[in-house]
Write a protein that binds this DNA or RNA. Sequence first.
DNA 1: GCCAACGTTGGC
DNA 2: GCCAACGTTGGC
Length: 139
Amino acid sequence: MKFWLFKSEPETWSWKDHCAVGVEPWDGVRNYQARNFMKEMSIGDLGFFYQSVKNPQIKGVVKIVKTYYPDPKDTRFGMVDLEAIETFLNPVTLKEMKKDSFLENLLLFRQSRLSVMPIPTNCWKHIVQLGNVDTNVKK
DNA sequence: GCCAACGTTGGC
DNA sequence: GCCAACGTTGGC
């Protein structure tokens, strides 16, 4: 099983929006590197929902429930379906992560414009602990 | 609101 | 195939 991170601006698509619908296709990715990561995803893999631009922070956890399929609007690109499964009671801010020596090599810092990326397993576990997960996303 | 980083487009 | 111009992302 692998771990990932997905970025979204809250004004475009927020964590609240995602929790309200449950499962949602992660479409609109128009970057080949990000697309290639999506092609590597398997059902059951987990990802962080990262809120970018406005108060950048990780809001919760999503699960890949459908593997990569092409976007009918542009078949060079595609999407995966993500289900919101856990909310962070304590969202983990970018600032906090940058200060954390445990996380210093994250792609998140090195390639700030990449919207989908892998997260190493040890970093994943560390961030989940910081986030203090609540499994009741509908609350 | 500014600006750095970086991906894409198009002229040559 | 190179590179300047331009557009977009995202941190601050």
